[in-house]
Simulated assay, not measured.
Amino acid sequence: MSSLARLLRRGEALLVRRHMQRAMSSHTDGEVRIVQRLKEKFPQATSLKVVDISGGCGAMYEIHIESDEFKGKRTVQQHQLVNQALKDEIQAMHGLRIFTAVPKQ
């Protein structure tokens, strides 16, 4: 096996190990802080999930939120509400993925 192949296998193993550690660990401080802020701003939220997708460094998050507060608003307006709620936190981020929805009744 070439040294490049060994390095690639070692790198794959490291990625798998990091993924497993992340899957088994509790939420990051950033995730907890963002969840708290969103719960304050969207008290009617029926579903809320925040995931640090930057490997735990807090540079990029993915947010899934369902709330009646989004009813009657276009997707861009829903996302603007989330951005406004997180305006202070966003300044330190590299990126943010937002998925919003109105709960099905």
Rank of each mutant, 00 (worst) to 15 (best):
V16M: 08
R17I: 00
R17H: 12
R17T: 11
R17G: 01
R17K: 14
R18N: 14
H19L: 12
H19N: 11
H19F: 12
M20V: 15
M20F: 05
R22S: 13
R22K: 11
R22E: 13
R22G: 01
A23I: 00
A23D: 03
M24Q: 13
S26H: 09
H27Q: 14
H27R: 15
T28V: 04
G30R: 04
G30L: 04
G30H: 09
E31R: 06
E31C: 04
V32S: 08
R33A: 12
R33T: 05
R33H: 10
I34M: 12
I34L: 13
I34W: 02
I34D: 01
V35F: 00
V35A: 10
V35K: 13
V35Y: 00
V35L: 03
Q36S: 13
R37A: 12
R37L: 13
R37E: 13
R37D: 01
L38N: 04
L38C: 07
L38M: 06
K39D: 04
K39E: 15
E40Y: 03
E40F: 06
E40M: 12
E40H: 11
E40C: 08
E40D: 14
K41D: 08
F42M: 10
F42Y: 08
F42P: 03
P43Q: 07
P43G: 07
P43H: 03
Q44V: 00
Q44T: 14
Q44Y: 07
Q44W: 01
A45K: 01
T46M: 02
S47H: 10
S47M: 10
L48G: 02
K49E: 14
K49W: 00
V50R: 02
V50Y: 02
V51I: 14
V51H: 03
V51W: 01
D52V: 03
D52I: 02
D52E: 06
S54G: 10
G55M: 10
G55N: 07
G55S: 09
G55C: 09
G56K: 09
G56W: 06
G56P: 11
C57R: 09
C57L: 09
C57M: 10
C57V: 12
G58V: 06
G58Q: 08
A59E: 15
A59W: 00
M60V: 07
M60I: 06
M60K: 10
M60W: 02
Y61F: 15
Y61M: 07
Y61A: 06
Y61D: 06
E62H: 09
E62Q: 14
E62W: 01
I63A: 04
H64E: 14
H64K: 11
I65R: 08
I65H: 05
E66V: 00
S67P: 09
D68S: 14
E69G: 15
E69S: 15
F70K: 13
F70V: 12
F70I: 12
F70C: 11
K71Q: 15
K71C: 11
K71N: 14
G72V: 09
G72C: 08
K73H: 13
K73P: 03
K73Y: 09
R74Q: 13
R74W: 02
R74V: 11
R74A: 15
